[in-house]
């Protein structure tokens, strides 16, 4: 069984302002690790494809 599809983006204020390419992850555990290391918050997206 595959669970809910999700895409996770970590970003910084700088990346927003400078329009840098954000980093996408598909594993929330990995995204949390990156967030902890870099101090960036996480943008977590659920997208259901019907």
């Amino acid at each position: 069984m595959r669970l809910l599809p999700l895409f996770i983006l970590t970003f910084t204020p700088l990346s927003l302002l400078a329009d840098q390419t954000p980093r996408w992850h598909t594993d929330i555990t990995r995204a949390c690790e990156v967030s902890r290391t870099t101090g960036q918050p996480i943008f977590l997206v659920f997208r259901c494809v019907r």
Binding site: P41, F43, L44, C48, V49, R50
Partner: peptide, 16 residues
């Protein structure tokens, strides 16, 4: 979240 929507987002920290 509202499970009938096709897209929704959260802003979270490393501790969720």
């Amino acid at each position: 979240f509202d499970l009938d929507t096709t897209w929704t987002a959260f802003f979270i920290d490393a501790d969720r």
